[in-house]
């Protein structure tokens, strides 16, 4: 407060001045508000244009690849510098991706879900440490997983370039995501479930196994789907360690191709035919991710409804 006068009520002059100033300023601020009411949607438009361009290009340029069965069934073949078609399909990349992601899931889901349940039910020092580790790792740049695959699996363990190397790299990527989401899923089960189980005389472990975890099932499945959706699209962890051999195999220790890795080489390819194919692979990946995410969302909505 600047001066020493004390004010008990607004004097007439003050009231009049407030009226006067506010009437004078009103137009200006209403104009400013109207301008911003236009600028804000313009920002929306500015943001929407590139994203819509992305979707439009994906669908228009990639759609024609997805419409042909040969895209899915044929093996990639060498293109010529002049033709725009007859480059085969991406069947080996599809099977390779499936193999890698399946192995990654087999490696990461059991450990991840169990660790997540541990976090939800314990408050030990290990739990606190693990929580920090998981949340840190879940945001780690995926290229580091690729470095691990090379540094540990290839160089130290001398495992040749194969689906397995890629699977391990992706598993490390998926682990923290699954663990954190599982902890949340289990914690979201209302405490009344546990109280009811304990009241019936069952011990804590039994209540967990028979009541809590089954109740969290939808949410956990949703988390796994989201982790898989993320893993399928990752390039950096796998591109240098999977071998890139265009053969379909069920043996994870064989080299394979993968959709993101093929996309990676197609983008930088000198052949226009392959650069065009890139859109087809991109659209395939995006659709796959969309379907998985959508299903995951449905399941987590179902889980939420169950508890409300």
């Amino acid at each position: 407060m600047s001066n020493t006068a004390t004010y008990t009520e607004l004097s007439e002059e003050t009231r009049a001045e407030i009226r006067r100033v506010s009437d004078a300023k009103r137009q200006g601020r209403l104009v400013r508000s109207s301008i911003m009411k236009v600028l804000a949607p313009l920002a929306l438009l500015f943001a929407a244009v590139p994203l819509i361009s992305l979707l439009v290009n994906l669908i228009s340029k990639g759609g024609r690849y997805l419409a042909h069965w040969s895209f899915y069934s044929q093996v990639p073949s060498s293109p010529s510098l002049f033709s725009e078609s007859s480059i085969g399909g991406v069947s080996t990349a599809i099977t390779g991706s499936l193999l890698i992601v399946l192995c990654a899931a087999v490696l990461s889901v059991p450990i991840g879900v169990t660790a997540g349940v541990y976090l939800a039910e314990n408050e030990t020092r290990l739990a606190k440490v693990l929580r920090v580790i998981a949340s840190t790792m879940s945001g780690a740049p995926s290229v580091l997983m690729g470095l691990f695959a090379i540094g540990f699996l290839v160089v130290t363990l001398k495992i040749q370039a194969s689906a397995f190397d890629g699977a391990v790299a992706l598993a490390i990527l998926m682990l923290p995501v699954i663990t954190i989401a599982t902890e949340i899923a289990v914690r979201n089960v209302p405490s009344t479930y546990r109280e009811a189980g304990l009241a019936l005389g069952a011990k804590k472990a039994r209540v967990s196994m028979k009541v809590i975890i089954p109740a969290a099932r939808s949410a956990i499945m949703s988390a796994i789907l989201l982790a898989i959706a993320r893993a399928v699209g990752e390039t950096a962890p796998i591109v240098f360690v999977i071998g890139g051999v265009a053969k379909t195999t069920l043996n994870p220790f064989n080299p394979v191709q993968a959709l993101p890795a093929l996309l990676y080489s197609d983008i930088g390819s000198p052949y226009p035919a392959l650069r065009n194919e890139a859109w087809g692979i991109g659209l395939l990946l995006v659709l796959f991710v969309f379907v998985l995410s959508f299903t995951a969302r449905l399941w987590s909505a179902r889980a939420a409804r169950k508890f409300s």
Binding site: S2, Y7, T8, E9, L10, T14, S22, A24, K25
Partner: peptide, 19 residues
């Protein structure tokens, strides 16, 4: 409402808090 003068604001703040 566009009022910026500190003395005016001081007066209004104090008197309304008193009331």
């Amino acid at each position: 409402n566009g009022i910026k003068k500190k003395s005016l604001i001081d007066e209004a703040v104090e008197s309304s808090l008193r009331v």
